[in-house]
Amino acid sequence: MKRSLLIALSAASVLLPQNALAADWMSGGEIMKELVGQELAFRGKLNGKIIYRKSGEMRMLSTKGRVVYGEWRIDDENGSLCSRIKQRRQAKEICYRTRHDGFGYRTDQGYKLMPLGF
């Protein structure tokens, strides 16, 4: 019984499209389409709101009321969103991958992103 169940699950996973698997990281194009231009809430080590503007600029508002500005870009080779905040991290760039996670997104840095207004 266990063996037939494993065979059935293996066969089913082969038939699923790649993007149907929840653990798949988003491509640069998917990130552009789904995250850029939208205001998002983020939760993790820090909490607040963020918007990645189509111009390549970003604005982050922490729950403590601090506004931080920076720049972002897509790393197509790794399918990552990279950001640089001038006031923090000695202006070092940090890149992270993103995947769908229920209602919203999850980053490989442990942050949950959710669209605002819902």
Rank of each mutant, 00 (worst) to 15 (best):
M1D: 09
M1P: 03
L5A: 10
L6Q: 08
L6N: 07
A8S: 12
A8F: 14
L9I: 15
L9E: 12
S10I: 15
S10T: 15
A11V: 15
A12M: 13
A12L: 15
V14L: 15
L15E: 02
L15N: 00
L16D: 06
N19Q: 10
N19H: 06
N19L: 04
N19P: 15
A20F: 13
A20S: 13
A20D: 07
L21K: 10
L21E: 03
A22S: 12
A23T: 15
A23M: 10
D24L: 04
M26A: 04
S27R: 01
G28F: 11
G28M: 07
G29E: 15
E30I: 03
E30R: 04
E30G: 01
E30P: 03
I31A: 00
M32W: 02
M32Y: 03
M32L: 11
K33W: 01
E34V: 06
L35V: 08
G37H: 08
Q38E: 07
F42I: 04
F42G: 02
R43C: 01
G44L: 05
K45N: 09
L46H: 02
N47M: 04
G48E: 05
I50K: 01
I51M: 12
Y52W: 13
R53C: 05
R53G: 02
R53I: 05
K54W: 11
K54T: 13
G56C: 05
E57D: 11
M58E: 14
M58Y: 06
M58Q: 12
R59W: 09
M60I: 11
M60W: 01
K64L: 06
K64Y: 02
G65P: 09
V67C: 01
V67L: 07
V68S: 07
Y69H: 08
E71D: 12
E71C: 01
I74C: 03
D76H: 08
D76A: 06
E77Q: 11
E77S: 08
S80N: 07
S80I: 04
L81M: 11
C82V: 14
R84P: 07
R88L: 15
Q90W: 10
Q90C: 04
Q90M: 11
K92R: 14
E93R: 00
I94V: 15
Y96T: 11
R97G: 11
T98K: 00
R99I: 10
R106Q: 13
R106W: 10
T107V: 12
T107H: 04
T107C: 05
D108L: 07
G110L: 04
M114C: 03
M114V: 14
P115W: 07
G117V: 13
F118C: 00
